[in-house]
Simulated scan of single mutants.
Amino acid sequence: MTAGIEVRGLTKRHPGARLDRPALQNIDLEIPHRQFVSLIGPSGCGKSTLLRILAGLDRADTGQVSLLGRSPKQASRRKAIGLVSQTPALLPWLTVRQNVALPGKVNRRAGSKIDSPDELLRAVGLEESADQYPHELSGGMLQRVAVARALGLRPDVLLMDEPFSALDEFTREALQYQLLGLWQQRATTVVFVTHSVREAVVLSDRIVVMSARPGRIHEVLDVDLPRPRDRKVVKGPHMHDLEDRVRASLQSAWKAGAAPDDLVPL
């Protein structure tokens, strides 16, 4: 299987941090192209830092990072990376359609690669909200707009940093299945940061369990639930077995100094 993302020997220290406590240490990770992979671990283990390095927003101190054979900066310049953060960060003076259209307007050289805003809004079920402004939308709707905007340039890699963490359980579950549908349609490599064991299992092909202080890869677990995933699949006994495996791995990772009270067992 073609490698989508490769990380070799990555170490990252924040300014002023103790030399023996880097944010990330000796990270080796390979994510096949078009897989959905979740990063899970306690706060402070470097999940978001790793995502920022993959996005080209931060730099590692040592090691190599490759996205489809390119450096993060090269992949970013080619508009091969989409990023969805915890907060949608929409421009309040623009309508939903205008917010979704913005990447195409500032990246005109992308040409035919750009999807139309209305097509993207249909994909996330928000075509009727195209002329509304962000302050008129619910939290779940705002995140759907953010996902639509990130997909506008048809990125090869979609990086998502706890995009559903602030939503209620019902909305969160609905958006998980919508995201899976979009991912399967577009054949994108997804790296998804979460604190929720259940969310990681529902979404992923593989789950990367990280330990903290310093952040390291503790274990990589395969999720062998059939696809496409629906509520019937995730209500079966094997789902619970997989959740137990992830929790056991997290318990083991805590021995490296992680604090368990910030994980949400949804």
Results as ranks from 00 to 15, higher is better:
M1T: 15
M1W: 14
G4K: 14
I5N: 14
V7W: 05
V7N: 02
G9H: 05
L10S: 00
L10A: 07
K12V: 05
H14W: 14
G16I: 10
L19Y: 13
A23T: 14
L24T: 01
Q25E: 08
Q25Y: 08
E30L: 13
H33W: 14
H33K: 15
Q35K: 11
V37N: 03
V37A: 04
G41E: 03
P42Q: 09
P42R: 04
G44K: 03
C45N: 02
C45W: 09
G46I: 00
G46H: 03
K47V: 11
S48Q: 03
T49P: 01
T49N: 00
T49M: 00
R52L: 04
A55W: 03
R59G: 03
R59V: 00
R59Q: 04
A60Q: 13
T62A: 10
G69F: 14
G69E: 13
G69C: 13
A75K: 05
S76K: 08
R78H: 14
R78N: 01
K79R: 13
K79Y: 11
K79P: 08
A80D: 14
G82E: 08
G82L: 03
P88A: 06
P88D: 06
L94D: 12
V96A: 15
N99L: 10
N99I: 07
A101F: 08
K105F: 10
K105M: 12
V106S: 14
N107A: 07
R109Y: 04
R109T: 01
G111V: 08
K113H: 12
S116A: 12
D118C: 02
D118R: 09
D118L: 09
V124P: 03
V124T: 11
L126H: 04
E127L: 13
E127C: 12
A130L: 02
D131Q: 08
Q132Y: 13
E136V: 11
S138G: 02
G140H: 11
Q143L: 07
A146N: 05
V147S: 01
L151N: 14
L151Q: 11
D156F: 13
V157F: 15
M160C: 12
D161P: 06
F164R: 05
F164H: 08
D168R: 09
D168C: 13
D168S: 07
D168F: 08
E169L: 05
T171W: 05
E173P: 02
L175R: 06
Q178V: 06
L179W: 04
G181S: 04
G181V: 08
Q184Y: 10
A187L: 12
T188M: 07
T188L: 00
V190F: 01
F192Q: 05
F192E: 02
V193K: 11
V193F: 01
V193P: 04
S196V: 11
R198G: 15
S204H: 08
S204C: 03
D205M: 11
M210R: 02
M210I: 02
S211N: 12
S211M: 11
P214C: 04
H218L: 05
E219Y: 10
V220Q: 06
D224P: 13
P226V: 02
R229P: 12
D230L: 07
K235Q: 15
K235I: 08
G236K: 04
L242H: 10
E243T: 11
R245D: 00
R247L: 09
R247G: 01
R247I: 08
R247Y: 06
S249A: 01
S249D: 00
Q251K: 00
A256H: 12
G257L: 03
G257T: 13
D261T: 12
D262M: 03
L263D: 15
P265W: 09
L266Q: 15
